[in-house]
């Protein structure tokens, strides 16, 4: 990861209190953060809350941001993911059940209708292990490179690939069976 950080200059300006830079950063990162959190949580309202909280962390830390470590985009993904896990933990405490480690191929998430497919994939993603979901969301939907995704997840690239493979297998089991029933 020796490439220059494309957000470096913008974050420096935000740290100096430049309002235009703040607007640009929001425009650049907000949709990404909402999409990330929505896919991790399966809840759009909570996703917007997470994005808002992530930006509070940005404003708080921008003036102390130093290039040379992780990319800013990687860092803010980690921040948002931590916020997502806080909420997933609260849900678990609330429901009293553990987060699923493996896919639970119990019900057909597709419902047999094309218009429900988006929601079907959303539900299928919620049914696989959170770390597998995280790996898929980062590499597939957020289009992070394997190195960036592994850095955001604080794991090795090999561990990332293992999570991805298991996650995709679980999704295939859930989704393909649903598709076969149509």
């Amino acid at each position: 990861m020796t490439d220059a950080d494309p957000d470096e200059d913008l974050v420096r300006r935000v740290g100096a209190g430049d309002e235009v830079a703040m607007q640009i950063l929001i425009k650049r990162k907000l949709p990404r953060l909402v999409a990330l959190a929505a896919r991790m949580l399966g809840d759009r309202t909570e996703a917007e809350d997470v994005a808002q909280e992530a930006f509070v962390r940005i404003w708080r830390n921008a003036s102390r941001w130093r290039p040379g470590g992780a990319r800013f985009d990687t860092w803010i993904h980690r921040v948002a993911l931590n916020l997502c896990y806080d909420r997933l933990r609260r849900r678990r405490e609330w429901s009293g059940s553990d987060l699923p480690e493996f896919a639970d191929p119990g019900e057909d998430p597709n419902g047999g209708r094309l218009e429900d497919m988006s929601r079907g994939v959303e539900r299928a993603l919620q049914r696989i292990a959170p770390r597998q979901r995280e790996a898929i969301v980062l590499t597939y939907y957020q289009e992070m490179s394997n190195i960036e995704a592994a850095a955001a997840m604080e794991i090795s690239v090999e561990a990332l690939e293992s999570l991805l493979a298991r996650g995709r297998r679980s999704l295939r089991t859930i989704l393909m069976r649903g598709a076969d029933h149509d």
Binding site: L30, P31, V34, A35, A38, R39, R44, A47, E48, A51, M117, S118, G120, V121, E122, L125, I136, Y140, Y141, L171, L175, A179
Partner: peptide, 11 residues
């Protein structure tokens, strides 16, 4: 199938 899952733009 994964591509069918889209997230609406933020409020």
């Amino acid at each position: 199938l994964l591509d069918l899952y889209t997230v609406r733009a933020p409020a």
